[in-house]
Design a protein around this nucleic acid. Sequence first.
DNA 1: TTTTATTATGCAATCGGTTGCATTAATTTT
DNA 2: AAAATTAATGCAACCGATTGCATAATAAAA
Lengths: 342, 342
Amino acid sequence: MGKEITIYDIASQLQLSPATVSRALNNHPAINEKTKVLINAKAEELGYRSNKFASNLRKQKTNTIGVIVPRLNSYIMSTVIAGMEKVANDEGFNLIISQSLESQRKEIANTKTMFNSRVDGLLVSVAFDTDSFEHFQPFLKKKIPLIFFDRIFENSDCPNIVIDNAKGGYEATKHLIEQGFKNIIHITGNLKRNVYSDRLKGYQQALSEFEIPFKSDNVWVTALSLEAGKEVAHRIKALPIKPDALFVSSDLCAVSCIATLKELNITVPNDIAVVGFNNDPVSQVISPKLTTIHYPAKEMGEMAVKSMINHLKGNFNLDATNTITLRSELIVRESSLFLTHS
Amino acid sequence: MGKEITIYDIASQLQLSPATVSRALNNHPAINEKTKVLINAKAEELGYRSNKFASNLRKQKTNTIGVIVPRLNSYIMSTVIAGMEKVANDEGFNLIISQSLESQRKEIANTKTMFNSRVDGLLVSVAFDTDSFEHFQPFLKKKIPLIFFDRIFENSDCPNIVIDNAKGGYEATKHLIEQGFKNIIHITGNLKRNVYSDRLKGYQQALSEFEIPFKSDNVWVTALSLEAGKEVAHRIKALPIKPDALFVSSDLCAVSCIATLKELNITVPNDIAVVGFNNDPVSQVISPKLTTIHYPAKEMGEMAVKSMINHLKGNFNLDATNTITLRSELIVRESSLFLTHS
DNA sequence: TTTTATTATGCAATCGGTTGCATTAATTTT
DNA sequence: AAAATTAATGCAACCGATTGCATAATAAAA
């Protein structure tokens, strides 16, 4: 037991050289078909498995893609990762996944680890407070491809994979306005991040289109967490003039806010309408069901890894592509409908 | 540029042998302290990074732990993975993560990939329909440590990391009974899996303790999905004699069921009380807030990787340990409270 | 039949650390 | 001062696959 089979074992048993065996196993065109069949059969028979370390050492490739995300345990990110895993697995690539926990410090540490692990490429969704590009420079210097997804680093010259956040923000807001709501508060996250600043732009555009004046007091920057949702509700309760609608950049936060509003005797959508973002499963199981923007998380993960692998294999050059935008769409449910009070 | 620094570069610059450099960088006791300092300084100066492939090739170790889970994008699993990632990262181990998507076929494919990737150890939570242990045998044969967590493989002789599911089921049920409910339906998943069969045992034990007869018709096996929750609600609506309480083995399913019941004019907890399982964030944001069993997912992930690494480092022998049980606890919220009808 | 392609295979160096077994230098013991 | 320890470093083989450059064998062209 235990003894690992190598190409040398196969070679000596078949009276061939290890070079031929190696080429045969890699389907090299210079090897005779019959020889290939012979070698593959013997490899199968002996239970041969290629030693990736020897191979990687020689080829100076790791077949590994690094992934850095703010956190793994959010609906969106775990779904993105699920999509990534699927494609990577099918293509024979490994993923090294790490989380920045929304801190630039941790993100920097993660990039170092990735760099030392010699990933062939790196996929990143940046943390809330990342404002330096410094820690990504080593990758560019070494020509290690770097793709940002979801939370991208603007003006970085790196390819990006995103949804059209401005469009999402615009549609959510427009929908609320069309339902008759005018005093719409936008609950969002750190505006350093494109996902939030772009949605804000969409929000502003919709307001402007309907000639509703934009008030900066109506944009509340929060952590978009469960707790943030509660706080928002209490803050609304305390307002002398209440908004008639909320556009919240995260379903979980929106839902938590709705629940707390209910406790405070403010009902949705009667008193305040709400639109979320992401189409988290939670949006379907609360009452009222939450109107939201569908986020193609799985597709984004698949696309990110596919693009990276294609680039690594030289199928197409990423440098030409700057941004890939995936389709997202408004899903209207109950939480944003104008109800005539009977 | 791009030229990678090796121990040979360091060695020649310092007029030392590569062997000494290697030992110094690994803090080998036979190397003089001053020499170590010198070598480390030079390594730092040149931007040296160790080549893991050369090292792994020689050491016949991969520093990689494989993880197979049913799916990545569930609250529990993404949280388990988050915990695993944290510990692995801190300890300098890599994780290769793959999902079986609840299918034994895919799980078998995953184990093969893991085997060929030569993971040093494997952590598994098995799929719904896995009933063969066959695909894990190669690991045992090669003495590659194998640990099951959450959904374990009973009678496998492998170490397991679990919560006390029977206790969870018992406490959930007992709580309902103590609230005055007697006709309690248990919504669960595939009973092949310990997590569900053990919770059922707990349910039965509580009933028996309070001398409530157990009816097998009151155990409904479902996929525990959002859709399953809806179906359960409709099925309950159609029942001539309705249950007064539900114990559902997943919060998301419970919540979806509650939402659908509401649509069908059955209110929780007034008409039917509900207890879930997992303490998914969703349980706090719905109305009524869901009583549930807290599942220490992050701790489970941390524990699994810690145990694996300790074993690999020889710190302690896993074979001695059979099962590690983590603490879980009942969290009482509104959905299970008996309300006097005013 | 000789020369030239073409095809198939082998040789041997290489990737970069690691480690058993010397060897040398420094220190202690007798 | 000679012998025996101890400490510090070096030599060289090794891990297993890959690949540029022969070389041999066969087929095609002259």
